[in-house]
Design a binder for these strands. Structure first.
Lengths: 197, 197
DNA sequence: CTCCTATCTTGACAGTGTAAGGATATGGGC
DNA sequence: GCCCATATCCTTACACTGTCAAGATAGGAG
């Protein structure tokens, strides 16, 4: 992770992952639109053209970052499911909570993944990771007894809407609650979209 | 009025609104991230520095465009309400449908308003327009019998989630329906979030 | 007609992404 | 030990961007 204190080694050692970390940090600090490839390189302590060898261009870097994001997004859902009751409805709500957890913890990365057209979803690595991530919630709907397209859309849209509004800090009445109370309220809301609730 | 044959008139006449139209067209064609102030100026047939006098800088232009967007966003909701039943629940669903209409008709503008940090919401004109627009749905919730923060959040998040997913074309199963069937399905989904439904 | 002001243009500057070619380290064959 | 093939990183250069400063033009007031 941390490279040596003396003048920077010519060969970084693990520049690829260092650039990904630097890119996410830059995104979080300066925002999606002010993102600059040269700033990322500077933050990683490397010349402005170094990223090219690992990612091709800026889109390549953001594509790789988004793919990594989708994998961690799926992990956030799984983490919630692991500590929830095992019945299908509880698992579905847990997946939705993980969806929201991720959006609140890393709002700019969430935006890169969902609202930006800079990542290239035709790159197989990202395409696969993205589909796996946002199909997971929909799959849970079927296990919980959902049968129609409307059931899938309702649960997904509700979780996504909560996540997006919370990530941009527009649901102040909810975001200001302490975590436990917030969790309970959000779980109650997600349950409204459940089939037969 | 248009003396287009000779070289362009030195004074445009209505450059401010021409630049706003050009900006929205550029956004729709080239996307949020590839937006360029110079391209907008070129599209409006004017020098690259002409926008500065009307909007200050790029952020000023995008702020003005977002403010105009929020006004039309509110109008889209009102248009749906005008042709809906007058009972509070129907009016609420209609507002949600207008919310979605706007997102599907002008997806990039929707993104500028909701997911970009380039517009400056501290400018009073935009701040007022934005608050008026997204409080309208929430106000309808109270009229329809909603009392809690959860009621407000549920309806808003559901409408917003549907709008956002449809704007980015991820709800293919819903987006592919013909308008009438799609309306019916979306209305049914929104109703799920209603208090006491 | 003269001049004032708002409007638009031109020219310049720093910062950006990207491509081309040069510099340096690493490891394998000898 | 020596040498060089390769991956890795740097330097340079170019077109494009947003913004600022200064000049050009038009329309209207007096």
């Amino acid at each position: 992770m941390q490279d040596a204190a003396p003048p920077r080694p010519y060969h970084h050692g693990d520049l690829r992952s260092a650039l990904l970390s630097a890119a996410e940090a830059e995104l979080a600090e300066r925002g999606m639109e002010a993102f600059s490839l040269r700033s990322v390189a500077k933050r990683a302590g490397v010349s402005h053209a170094a990223p090219a060898h690992h990612f091709g261009d800026a889109q390549g870097l953001l594509t790789a970052l988004a793919a990594e994001g989708f994998r961690q997004f799926l992990a956030a859902q799984s983490a919630r499911e692991a500590v929830a009751e095992s019945d299908p409805a509880s698992q579905l709500v847990a997946a939705g909570m993980g969806y929201i957890d991720f959006a609140m913890a890393r709002p700019t990365l969430f935006r890169l993944m969902w609202q930006s057209n800079r990542p290239d979803f035709d790159i197989p690595d990202l395409g696969k990771a993205a589909r796996a991530a946002f199909h997971h919630l929909v799959d849970q709907v079927a296990k919980a007894g959902g049968e129609t397209t409307a059931d899938e859309a309702a649960v997904w849209a509700l979780a996504h809407g909560l996540a997006d509004l919370l990530a941009s800090n527009r649901l102040r009445g909810v975001g200001a609650l302490d975590p436990a109370a917030r969790d309970e309220m959000l779980a109650g809301i997600i349950r409204r979209a459940l089939p037969g609730a």
